[in-house]
Amino acid sequence: MSTTVDTTPIARQKRNRFMLQAACIAVSLFMLVPIYLISLAALSTRESLNEFPLSLLPTNLSVETLNAFLGSTGIFAALGNSLIVGAGTLLLSALIGVPAGYALARFTFPGKDPYQLFLLFTRALPIVVLSVPLARLFLTMDIYDTTYAVILLHTALALPTTILISASVFLSVPVDVEEAARLFGCSPLGAFGRVVLPMALPGLAAASIFTFVMSWNEVLGASILTLDHRTLPAQVLSSLSDSPLAYRFAGGFALVIPSIIFIALMRRYLTNMWGSTIR
C-alpha cells in the first residue's frame, strides 16, 4: 500500500490495466493453442503420433503426412472448384442480395417484417433435407454434379445473411448524402452508383468475404449435389472420414490455414459489415 491516499486510484487503475492485458492474453491463448496443436499434429511423423505422451514441442517435425495428403488425387482440382463456387456464389448473391438489402434499408413496404422473418427462417432448415429435393430438381435441369448446382445452393443459403448484412450497411450510410446528390440533379440510380455505393463498399466487401467463407465451409450440401466436382472441404472430408488419424489431422490443418488467411484479409472490414460506422 502507498503512503498517500491519492495514489490508490492510480494503483487500482494500474492493476485493472494489468488484469485487462492478462485477460486479453488468456483469451488469445485459448484461441491459439488449439491451432498450434493441430499444426503440430499435422507436421509430426506418423510414428511420433502413436507415442504417448505426445510431445508438446515441435521436436519431431516432418511434412510426410501433409505431403501425402496434398499429393492425393483431386486436391488441386477440388481447390479450383472451391474457388469457382466461392466466386460464383459471391457474385450471384451480391447481384440478388444487395438490391434487396438496399430496399430493406431505405423503403417501408407492406410485408417487410414477414419478409425479414422469412429470411431468417430459411436458415433454420437443415441443409441435408434441402439438398435432396434440390438434387432431384438439378437432375431434371441437367446441372447435377456441376459447379453451377453448388453455386445455386450456396447462393440460396447465403442470401439471407447477404441481404441482412447489406441492409445494415446501407443503414449506416446517411440518407442526407443521398438526398443531397438527388438535389444536385442525380437520378436515383446515379445517386446510388456515385454516392451510396462507394460509401457502402467496405461493408459490402466484408459481406462478400463472409459469403465466400460460408461457401468455402459448406460441406453437406456440396457433397450431396456433386460426385466428381467436389469442392475442397467436401473432397477432403469425404476422403478423410475413412483415413487414419494422422491424415485427418493433416486435413484439419489444411483447412485451418485458409481461414487464417481469410481473416487476415477481411480483418479491417470485419466490423464494417454489421453497419457499425456513424449512424
Binding site: 502413436n50 487414419p244 488419424l245
Partner: peptide
C-alpha cells in the same frame, strides 16, 4: 478402425 488404437 481398430488398426489405429492397435498401432498406438
Amino acid at each position: 478402425y481398430m488398426q489405429e488404437p492397435l498401432a498406438r
